[in-house]
Design a binder for these strands. Structure first.
Lengths: 223, 223
DNA sequence: CCAGTTATTATACAATTGATTAATTACAAA
DNA sequence: TTTGTAATTAATCAATTGTATAATAACTGG
């Protein structure tokens, strides 16, 4: 008899709510288990809204993926540019952020991997991935260059890009394996491990990143 | 009313055929698009065989994942232990193998990523992944230790493991991003990039891995 | 060549899927 | 308050899903 009471949300709010419910369901049940009914139930609405806001399920999932990548890259660049600090500090903080929660979470890695599997056959997924990857590389290059300069290392655009590619590979790989936590080692070793490995990859003296001032005062140690 | 003619295969052959068809379909259509009908059609049989050989679809997929991981680790250790050569040569060959076809293929990366998304919620998937990861780390440790010794670097078990974790992260990350080929750079730069990065990570002189004698005879500049 | 075993096919079935439509009702504007 | 708009619900639909069962035929051992 009585219909379900509901609330009319703005277009942006409802779309975001549905995209977040989509990500929750994909993380929890995989792509094949993220059905329209489960997603809308998670969002607290009925199935008709999918058509109303996204046209169909596939488009909703595509939008949810773009939303996820946007979150990941946003928090990446944010943790980098957040404060004014020495380049070494900024880079060190960025590296640590990617090896600790909330950035390194099992749920995000699972989501990321699940969607990566679709990049190959869906042009929209491929574009979303490429944009996110490019953004991540750009952030890394921006962080790396001043550190190289400070320590008299080659810092051409090509050199910076090459370093960014290597560092991104290192971060991606450890981010994934670390979050999955296979139990072969503790995740707590990863921040220091990444810092040390990055020092070696960049060819800068040991300790430059490890001992960088955490956040407060930029070290005026350039001479 | 002619029935389909068929061939009776041995248990192992039929199971392998079904697992390979499963991987093909998952790579092509994703987990949600890998239906029993598509898989069995790919394998050239009818749907009833899934129940007969695996009980149900989920078990077939689990077995296919284990089959994939077995392939990946097998070709990894094989490319390492293939010939008797200097430790530097063996490590260099292993690194290059992971940055070139057939190891670095878009299909394998897509498959790998798709399944990784399930590790979190399925204990069987988690175990399969952990075993493969452990095997990969072991191979790396075995390859790294003699190289460290040859160049008077610290080579305790702990140090080797630490280096293996970092190198594995680097390889995993570049293997993924490289295979997906976002177009931001050419995949052909990756073998040399990985070699150079590994030299730095291990703290061995530049060129030790890059100039290691390949198995056959290409580089004529060292005569 | 024949009989027995069982791998394999063919078909059926209930459940679930994504999509669509018409009926409601929340909310803003007047 | 009243009215108009459109966000949302509820119900229906055909198609597809995984599973189950009986009929068939390929192969093996005698």
């Amino acid at each position: 008899m009585s219909r379900k009471t509901f609330q009319r949300l703005s277009l942006d709010d409802r779309r975001r709510s549905l995209m977040e419910a989509t990500l929750t369901c994909v993380a929890r049940h995989g792509l094949h288990g993220a059905t329209v009914r489960r997603i809308t139930e998670e969002a607290g609405v009925t199935v008709g809204l999918v058509r109303h806001y996204f046209g169909n399920k596939d488009d909703m999932i595509r939008n949810a993926y773009a939303y996820l990548v946007g979150q990941l890259t946003a928090q990446a660049s944010e943790s980098a540019k957040h404060t004014v600090a020495a380049p070494e500090t900024q880079l060190a903080r960025f590296l640590r952020a990617n090896m600790t929660t909330p950035n390194m979470s099992e749920e995000k890695v699972s989501l990321w991997a699940t969607f990566i599997g679709r990049v190959r056959h869906d042009a929209d997924f491929a574009e979303i991935h490429r944009d996110g990857y490019r953004e991540f590389l750009n952030v890394l290059e921006t962080l790396i260059e001043p550190v190289l300069i400070n320590h008299q290392r080659p810092h051409s655009i090509a050199a910076c890009k090459r370093h960014a590619i290597a560092l991104n590979g290192l971060i991606d790989g450890l981010w994934m394996e670390g979050a999955l936590n296979s139990g072969l080692y503790g995740q707590d070793i990863l921040p220091d491990l990444v810092i040390e490995a990055s020092e070696r990859l960049l060819g800068i003296p040991s300790g430059v990143l490890a001992n960088a001032q955490p956040s407060q005062q930029p070290q005026s140690e350039v001479s």
